[in-house]
Design a protein around this nucleic acid. Sequence first.
DNA 1: ACGCCTCGTGAAAGTAAGTTTCATCCGTGG
DNA 2: CCACGGATGAAACTTACTTTCACGAGGCGT
Lengths: 304, 304
Amino acid sequence: MAKSPKISASHEPGGLIVHISGLLPSLSPAEQRVARLVVSDPAAAARRTITDLATAAETSEATVIRFCRSVGMDGYPQLRIRLAAEAARRIEPPDARVVGGDIPPGADLAQIIATIAFNDARAVEETAEQLDPAVCEQVVEAISGAGRIDIYGAGASGFVASDFQQKLHRIGRIAFYFPDVHTALTSAALLGRGDVAVGISHTGTTSDVIEVLEQARTRGAVTVALTNFPRSPITEVADFVLTTAARETTYRSGATASRLAQLTVVDCLFVGVAARNRSRARKALEATAEAVQSHRVGANRRRA
Amino acid sequence: MAKSPKISASHEPGGLIVHISGLLPSLSPAEQRVARLVVSDPAAAARRTITDLATAAETSEATVIRFCRSVGMDGYPQLRIRLAAEAARRIEPPDARVVGGDIPPGADLAQIIATIAFNDARAVEETAEQLDPAVCEQVVEAISGAGRIDIYGAGASGFVASDFQQKLHRIGRIAFYFPDVHTALTSAALLGRGDVAVGISHTGTTSDVIEVLEQARTRGAVTVALTNFPRSPITEVADFVLTTAARETTYRSGATASRLAQLTVVDCLFVGVAARNRSRARKALEATAEAVQSHRVGANRRRA
DNA sequence: ACGCCTCGTGAAAGTAAGTTTCATCCGTGG
DNA sequence: CCACGGATGAAACTTACTTTCACGAGGCGT
């Protein structure tokens, strides 16, 4: 199927930097060097001339221009002023905190906590900023009207998929999540027009998830991808692409920031769907809340 | 020699625009025309080329350059990026976000997204702020030295528990999570001195979790509670209490904010434990990352 | 009043920055 | 092994920026 995504990735209202780091893996090596320089210090990059930047990235001016185009700019001057604007807007990284970076070896726990929380909060905020409400809207609509919703995700993204499934289920939508690829494939094969399939993969390269999503698409279901990288393979089999904006650190392969970002997106979709049929959703939520009530012990006198 | 700067361009603290309009009267007529254009719409000016701006001000490029020097810039490019930065800074009134509140019934998706993200990010930040590093340290130490770690959680907190289990497992710690109460109880009964049990419950009132944690404590294990409410029942059976700081909205029983906060805490503990034995943890992480590599499709690349 | 100096100004020359083109290189798959 | 396609930098080229310079309009002393 040579269907191309319905949406363009040209939407980057929230941070340019975020946008760039999202596309980072889809860039060529030389362009990546440029990108990393730009992302690590946008303000400094804005001050540099193209030749200067090229030299610093150990590449040619041509590559810098190519990089500009790759991230959606007209040319270097435009990138420059956008960068300057961006740098000015962002509140400077709270001193000792390593933004987007690794945890320094000698860090004490307080530092670790601060760093993690900072990065986590950032990921959530930046994700929200660059989320395209129009795309969300369409996805919400598709889900609201779907006969059935299949949600796929492996590993860490599996948690998120499962979470989404549970959420939708609680407001009365028919949603499924499959921890196992084979079951998922079987299910995907049974989808059809009017159904929705959601594939979640941080990297966008998880072959299992892509495969299943492709299957779903072939069967006529609307396919949605949730990934951090707007040009990753999974986007090629998706009608709608939603992206997160986590700059993952190398060390913490736990990848919590990206998971939080994913959860935030899922939550937005959930609330969006719930808001479409407020009374019904509310009723369903109340019913489910009541159901677990018997498993709670009484007194929770909090508040001093 | 004859030419000395009209003004000491030392530095312009208040803002470039203010600075310019301040010395507007001291400029020559042609420069004033330029200055007025710049002041009236800095962002637009930043987008223009020098020729463009000169034309718009009905003067020559030379005059624009002179203007740049007059206001203390090196040249036009510098003025441009400063202008872009300035313009970006001044448009920044992040309109009324519904803090901690419910989503208003008539909200559109963009509002919903902003509200959710704001609350989510807040929950993460505030959680980190009130986390006691000393308590974390002790928990980290207990986990690091534990023979075995049991993690309990039900419903939404179950995801977090499961996530924690997986994280610890990946760095080579022996950790378990049980979706089922009976299995959990059985496991708790087998704990002993030197083992650690972690109970996760947002409300702190989930009887299943409390019960299991209590069992673990009876057997001599160190018990840790992770909850949003510092005086909830679960804290009574815990040696160490870690709290999240999510002000949950009534409507979104999905309770994502609290889940994010929990994940953040878990992540802090995880990194703390990993940092205790950096090299070994790193090796383990690399090994696990490598293991899933074969399930990824290669090229994360797609030309526009 | 006259010339001379000064300043503001833009035209044009000059330089540097940015952009395009193209040949080369390298890995990939036939 | 060769054909192919993408990535890359050298160099040609274009545009933007900067400097130089000459001209003209006041101001001022003689």
